[in-house]
Design a protein around this nucleic acid. Structure first.
Length: 682
DNA sequence: TGCCATCAT
């Protein structure tokens, strides 16, 4: 049995005071839910933000933008909108908005605030997320919404005129919508200075946000207010030497904690499903050596690919005398909070997607986490009591870690965001005041995509189709197919395919024997033309058999994903009706459907080669079919396919393929070339 | 032959 080979700052070694200052996470003791108005009031007054109330209200009068540095549990998200409401910021029909990067946060916070205010959810306090608007046009004064929804609202109301205050919460996460909305808010404030902005962020990013809002404005434009939280200290321990295998080391560390430390659950951060399963395997090999009288160990996996039930299992408290261990991806860093964690084991790595605009290729790579992430992960050990974080790397590695993760806007395909910015009248993208500017190459590539797709003309302005597509919540190439479906008379089917390609993880294929059975189930939907038609078959079967969860389970489909596809389809259907696109059925004529697919995917063509791989039409890159594809083991008769997306992991893979005839590619390829000679398309 | 970090409209 190995012992813990960790060095703990504070017990020995240099540099501990600095480490403690930056890495102690502050957290609040959750207050018990109360029913009576008086106890709610006193609970509100116990929150750390309460004693900053007057100062905050003063700053809201004086400054245009308040950067709020608030620790977890300081009460900023729930309390500040209420203070503003009580101080009259929602008078005269004005609304106080608070954005969240995630749907669940928007709904759960709105719920709690409605209780505190003493109103029915959806009246004075409401929320708006995609597919769910629990707010009232007249009554709602405090509105929680996803940042994506607020961004979308600017397409209809460019000055966001119904709001007096907009709070952008969790801004340090730097989701693409957070960045886009911040850029727009800076612009809006120049035209409508009465609008107040609150940017809530972690310490590391605060001055950056202030400098951003002050640039080109008066120095009084923005100020920083810091709130402390109620904290439990988290001690941080490092490995003395780097490890070659952090998965094995993680299992070893969990086991050592279990043998040596008192009660308390353990949360392990790894990068993906494969690692999690290997770690589970390694741990299972220790289990037989567990002494008879020792506490038991309950080990659970946590990642987004699990079913809802499997995910819920991590929240169940372990039996008495049993320690719970959760082996998780980054989902537990910010999206999922598990109470009762006392020990965190951090691999120090994360999988991150980056987009290469030159090759139009996204890659998913395992990279070291940022200091901000490492701090956030450590903090997960201190939510209910003091805790310890074991980092599976030496302390010296901190020096080479980036301070923060690069914002999403620097790492993604900007085709859709730029279409939307154009629709908002932001025509000169180089002059747009980005919080962090995306690479120029990414902007150029996005513009080129939009021109090629007929959304933007050679003059750089939106075309008639571009104006319509900007409103429509789908990718540009999918929108093109929906428009082309009129010509091919297959609107009904394209609508379903558009919805099904927009959801991920439709088929649930577990590991081992259960996975083999699931594969057999999936084959029942298989269309020989490829994955798009297979998805269509699955959707139609789901609709035919009553959209039931039990039916999904029996057929290896994700009920969550299928239900989401139903919502998306219904939403897109409204857009098609608005755009006058007919909802005709192709009546089983798969050829028409496949041709229609090419109208959107014409740049995603690939040719089969003898070794079973494909070569991309653009760039002649070697492509591997994703094992989930129905064409994984089969050569298409024509030897040609189009695909929905490609991504570089260990290999470059293509997902969701359909067999096509090569001359269909030429048809759309020619129209692209025509555009360069000045002939208008679509 | 062998599999997607997370989130969002």
């Amino acid at each position: 049995m190995s012992t813990l080979q960790f060095w703990k700052p504070g017990t020995s070694g240099p540099g501990s005071s600095l480490d403690r200052a930056t890495e102690t996470e502050e957290n609040v003791v959750p207050s018990a839910p109360s029913s009576g108005a008086i106890s709610i009031q006193s609970a509100r007054e116990r929150l750390p933000i309460f004693k900053h109330r007057e100062k905050l209200l003063y700053c809201m009068e004086k400054y245009g933008v308040v950067i709020l540095v608030g620790q977890t549990g300081s009460g900023k998200t729930t309390q500040l909108p209420q203070y503003l409401y009580e101080a009259g910021w929602a008078a005269d029909g004005n609304i106080i908005a608070c954005t969240q990067p995630r749907r669940v946060s928007a709904t759960s916070v709105a719920n709690r605030v409605a209780t505190e205010v003493g109103t029915i959810l959806g009246e004075e306090v409401g929320y708006t997320i995609r597919f769910e608007d629990v707010s009232d046009k007249q009554k709602t004064r405090i509105l929680y919404l996803t940042d994506g929804m607020l961004f979308r609202e600017t397409l209809v109301d460019p000055l966001l005129s119904r709001y007096s205050v907009i709070m952008i919460d969790e801004a340090h996460e730097r989701s693409i919508y957070t960045d886009l909305i911040l850029g727009l808010l800076k612009k809006i404030r120049r035209k409508r200075p009465s609008l107040r902005i609150i940017v809530s962020s972690a310490t590391l990013d605060a001055t950056g946000f202030r400098d951003y809002f002050c640039a080109g404005n008066s120095p009084d434009e923005a100020t920083i207010v810091s709130l402390e939280g109620r904290m439990y200290p988290v001690e941080v321990a490092y490995l003395q030497e780097p490890t070659a295998d952090y998965v094995r080391k993680a299992a070893e560390t969990v086991w050592s904690i279990h043998m040596q430390q008192s009660a308390g659950d353990i949360l392990v951060f790894l990068t993906g499903r494969e690692e999690i399963e290997r770690c589970l395997q390694e741990l299972s090999e220790y289990l037989p050596t567990l002494p008879r009288n020792a506490p038991r160990l309950k080990v659970l996996a946590l990642h987004a690919g699990l079913t809802t039930d499997e995910q819920l299992a991590v929240f169940e408290p372990a039996d008495r005398g049993t320690r719970k261990v959760i082996i998780s991806t980054n989902i537990a860093e910010a999206s999922v909070t598990i109470e009762g964690i006392k020990f965190v084991v951090d691999s120090g790595f994360v999988k991150i997607r980056t987009y290469n605009p030159t090759s139009a290729l996204s890659s998913l790579a395992t990279v070291p986490v940022s200091l901000a992430s490492a701090t956030q992960r450590a903090g997960r050990a201190g939510r209910t009591s003091a805790g310890i974080c074991y980092r599976l790397y030496p302390e010296s590695a901190l020096r080479s870690m980036p301070a923060t993760t690069p914002p999403e806007i620097t790492r993604t395909d900007l085709t859709t965001p730029i279409l939307q910015l154009k629709s908002l009248g932001v025509d000169d993208l180089m002059k747009f005041e980005w919080v962090t500017g995306p690479p120029a190459e990414a902007v150029l590539r996005a513009l080129e995509n939009l021109v090629a797709a007929g959304m933007v003309g050679e003059d750089g302005r939106l075309t008639v189709v571009g104006e319509k597509v900007a409103e429509c919540p789908v990718e540009v190439n999918i929108a093109r197919m929906l428009f082309a479906s009129k010509e091919y008379k297959c609107g009904e089917e394209m609508l379903t395919i558009a919805a099904m390609t927009a959801v991920q993880d439709v088929f649930v294929i577990p590991d081992g024997a259960a996975g083999a059975l699931a594969e057999l189930e999936r084959r029942k939907f298989t269309a020989e033309e490829g994955d798009h038609l297979t998805l269509l078959n699955a959707y139609n079967a789901f609709a035919r058999y009553g959209r039931a969860a039990s039916w999904c389970k029996a057929h290896a489909l994700s009920f969550r994903a299928m239900s989401r596809a139903v919502s998306i389809r219904a939403q897109l259907k409204k857009y098609m009706q608005r755009f006058g696109l007919p909802l005709e059925s192709c009546q089983g004529d798969a050829r028409r459907l496949r041709e229609c697919l090419v109208s959107g995917y014409w740049r995603n063509g690939a040719r089969w080669v003898a070794d079973g791989t494909y070569r991309s039409v653009r760039g002649n890159v070697t492509l591997h079919v994703h094992p989930n594809s129905v064409l994984f083991t089969r050569k298409p008769r024509s030897g040609w396919v189009v695909f929905h997306e490609m991504e570089e992991t260990k290999k470059t893979q293509i997902r969701i393929l359909t067999e096509i005839e090569p001359d269909w590619l030429l048809k759309y390829g020619h129209s692209f070339r025509d555009k360069h000679t000045g002939v208008a398309v679509s």
